[in-house]
Design a protein around this nucleic acid. Structure first.
Lengths: 211, 211
DNA sequence: TTAACTAGTGAGTGAGCAATCACACATTTT
DNA sequence: AAAATGTGTGATTGCTCACTCACTAGTTAA
């Protein structure tokens, strides 16, 4: 803008201010913008799903023009895949740290992961909705299917390694995770009928109740 | 039509046949057309999901005009809800008859239902995909959410009554059903990795396998 | 300085889609 | 017979949306 840049001393050693540190100047790097864009996209995709989420809204939320969105991600599909990867990655990370922390404290990692998943879903509904939408479009979009498979592969590896659980136990763990997803999707916890009460009693199967 | 057979004294409620070729058309009742339309809609919704499924394609598949589609179902949403209800209804029916048949033969109804669900999903992928898409739009479309809740309520009632299973057992049964859905959605059975092998081993948890 | 490059945008474009409307044909009723 | 009701359609409308293009401005290298 008005800043007539004093371009002095740009010798070989170029330590530019806006490159690595967080000094956000007027222009960001494309990579930074991409990350911001994914962050803005996740709530929109989570709320509306892939097909119903308009790129205009995502761009607006990210504070950039729609035209630039399509420069950063050539297609909406690629943006969605990036959003799914970010979401699943966060999930795996969260469970991994929960398991690690539990191990330090001598707690059962399997139980800790179960608890952590319940917390995750309870506190971060977006994550769960992204899962749900990603599953739904998996048959139609190979890249999403691939991302979901990777997510399961990572979770399974994490679980096996940390807990040493049998295949049967792992399967049960995953199965209950899927049940949590679905019950949350239909808001079953606000229903006061036997089926809803039984199927939303998440804590019971993760670890012995306290508190 | 040249052959206007003088009368069609239909004492009972039988309907007009439309099997007449060569340009002659007979009219069906709106209710019949609605049923046909739902049948045509299910494959399209199952393949593409709610938002990506065009009403034009559904109408074409049903052999009627798009305009008439909107006369039979004032909104796309209502058609989708009808399709979901049909799908979930079929599922409950199938499992109920499986349980009943098993009971006659002295088989464990719970195991029979597990087997029947596996068969259902393996043979009728559409049903499963409808479930998946219905779950995904449940947060956004109250009527779909309601239909899904009803489905779970019916299944739970069926399971409790037939098998007398505890809440914990029922939950496990549902959980594994949800796992089957998701694994089928991402086509895990075509993946040859430990996680996929373990998580797609459906038969094992329903009943002791032979074969 | 100037040239090359990168970040960023306003204003479209073309296509697809849900929903509407005026109208035609069929069947039943009066 | 005509009227009334029910089945069915072609043409269109209004709108949304993914994606493009021509262009501006900031940043860096020669």
């Amino acid at each position: 803008m008005a800043t007539t840049s004093a371009k002095k001393g740009t010798a070989a050693g170029d330590r530019v201010r806006n490159a690595s540190p967080a000094g956000s100047r007027s222009l960001s790097t494309a990579e930074e913008r991409r990350e911001e864009l994914i962050s803005a996209a996740i709530p929109v995709f989570a709320e509306k799903g892939y097909h119903a989420a308009p790129t205009t809204e995502i761009a607006r939320k990210a504070g950039i023009s729609q035209a630039y969105l399509f420069r950063l991600f050539p297609t909406k599909e690629e943006l969605f895949v990036a959003a799914v990867e970010r979401s699943t990655g966060r999930m795996v990370e969260t469970l991994a740290t929960a398991a690690a922390r539990a191990e330090e404290q001598g707690m059962e990692p399997g139980d800790a992961m179960g608890l952590a998943y319940g917390d995750l879903v309870g506190s971060d509904r977006e994550l769960l909705l992204m899962q749900l939408h990603a599953q739904a479009v998996s048959p139609a979009i190979p890249a999403v299917r691939e991302a979901m498979r990777k997510c399961f592969a990572n979770l399974y590896a994490l679980g096996s390694e940390r807990t040493g659980g049998s295949a049967e136990e792992m399967k049960s763990w995953f199965a209950h995770g899927m049940l949590i997803n679905v019950m949350t999707a239909i808001n079953a916890e606000e229903v006061n009928e036997p089926w809803a009460v039984a199927l939303t009693d998440f804590e019971g199967d993760c670890f012995p109740r306290e508190s």
